[in-house]
Amino acid sequence: MRPFRFERATDAQQAVALLGDAPDARYLGGGTNLVDLMRLGVETPGTLIDVTRLVGYDRIDEGDDGGLRIGAAVRNSDLAADPRVRERYPVLAEAVLHGASGQLRNLATVGGNLLQRTRCAYFTDVTKPCNKRALGTGCPAREGRHHNHAIFGHSEHCVATHPSDMAVALAALGATVHALGPAGARTIPIPGFYRLPEDAPHRDTLLEPGELITAVELGPPPGRQTRQRYRKVRERRSFAFALASVAAVLDLESSGTVSDVRIALGGVAHMPWRATRAEVALRGAPVTPERATEAAQAELEYAQPLRDNSYKVELAHNLIAATLMELAA
């Protein structure tokens, strides 16, 4: 690991200024991903700026509309245990609890969770080419080991997936990321916060160099008729990344007609994948087994599986259909 200077910021402006003074610096949250990547030689910062103790950033504040503003330094475990999150946005608590282990959730922060990097084995092995780690070196995963890689939105330059469970739920809930950078503060909605790899897979998000996530904002809580669910399929039952996952938020009228629905998929793309084609197919009528299957089909017929991950097409299809039926029951 390369030696690094360690700085602790007490407010966000100071953190941004510190990073501006040291271009090879990185913000440090819980360190569960960054420290590991430094140990692997994937990340080689000359300075770490600890942003876990920014004053007020470890709080979850309630807005007048019942929405929540989640500070970027809130630990994953505190987020999942918060009674307001569990009651109003259970899909978010479920997603967080389906990620990592108790020990890791105690360290990991909300901001860090959103900015964690792919677990593609080529990305984490510095002896291998990887366009995400070293742009222009190539993507061995395309023809190599890619059974857990993307089936949507990949490019010839990168077929990696985004590993976060939390981000999938936030995409279905329509959350907004607050960021502060040298040019000031701005807000970016999820999933638009993330980007597809295209010809620049080294960039996971729309954040500019030096920008810091300060909070994640959730709008007014869904009404009582809204049902939410996060389901995740893994190679083992617990403590593993998703082969595929789904976050679904379903608004039903008293007649059972779908007034609104938001579906996001995890483990299938470079970003949380909003299944907008499935959403369109569901609106305006009750959820039946046939309609749930048609909706899943409407999305998955656009999948572009690789040689060894076509199983994800059927997996994601069944996951969408089963989750819709469960929510509508």
């Binding site: 360690f6 602790r8 440090l28 420290v35 140990r39 600890d50 020990q103």
Partner: peptide, 29 residues
């Protein structure tokens, strides 16, 4: 494992369990 995957390094930091291998000492001053 030194990567946060096995839990053999688990300790309590301010009363909460955590992977000591991924926790930089300077960050927990």
């Amino acid at each position: 494992c030194d990567h946060g995957q096995c839990g053999a390094c688990t300790i309590l930091i301010d009363g909460r369990r955590a992977n000591a291998c991924l926790a930089l000492a300077v960050a927990h001053n």
